[in-house]
Design a binder for these strands. Structure first.
Lengths: 107, 107
DNA sequence: TGGCTGTTTCAATGCCGCTTGAAGTGTCGA
DNA sequence: TCGACACTTCAAGCGGCATTGAAACAGCCA
């Protein structure tokens, strides 16, 4: 018998991997980190990141479609904010947990 | 003054993003999860994942080069195991932490 | 030694995501 | 209504990474 482990369903693996991939881009990583400080309008993000506006917009869209951030228009500007569960969902998407090798072995 | 945040150095961002990208592949995600149960030889991983041997070897190499796993030969077989700090390093590579929105807003 | 299994490396291909330039939408002020 | 500003969308182009097939390497056993 070849070591029976509770196998994770393929679509759950895909979801986790995809979510991690969203955070695994340097620019998006930075955006998430910036937004941790609170809602921020695009122009401010742009000043902080120094990238062309359309590129910024593209990556913000990726974050939005992953439901990691939300956007809301305020007059002429658009504020982006971390989704409430963003941190939780990212942490949950990791394949292993910190210190896991110590507990190990759920039989 | 445009919201002074302690900015993360570019190479640190790159390291984190790269590490996350390693975990963000479905097959590698699965391998990490499998290895969480303890050291496992390649042939067993192959049975669990159902992928060609050379492809498996490629992804194990990626994990090895990211220092997320270690390999050790045992006779004819090669055992792979999670690196001790694998979980810690992955968790530390996330741009935001769970529950961060609650503390939020340092004005 | 020769053959077999387990595992890795090499070379080549194809696809997907990042980047870029240009055009489009929406809002405000003159 | 016109123009300026903030931001998004569209259409290519390019590069890197995952995948594949074939060959190489390493250890065991006859």
């Amino acid at each position: 018998m070849p070591l029976e482990v509770s196998t994770t369903p393929p679509e759950a693996v895909a979801r986790s991997a995809t979510l991690l991939a969203v955070a695994a881009d340097p620019l998006r990583w930075r955006l998430l980190r910036l937004l941790e400080a609170g809602p921020t309008c695009v122009c401010e993000l742009q000043r902080a990141c120094d990238v062309p506006a359309n590129l910024l917009s593209y990556h913000l869209r990726v974050l939005r479609e992953a439901d990691l951030v939300t956007a809301s228009r305020r007059g002429r500007w658009i504020d982006y904010a971390l989704a409430e569960d963003a941190g939780t969902r990212l942490a949950a998407a990791l394949p292993i947990r910190a210190g896991a090798w110590e507990v190990g072995d759920r039989s």
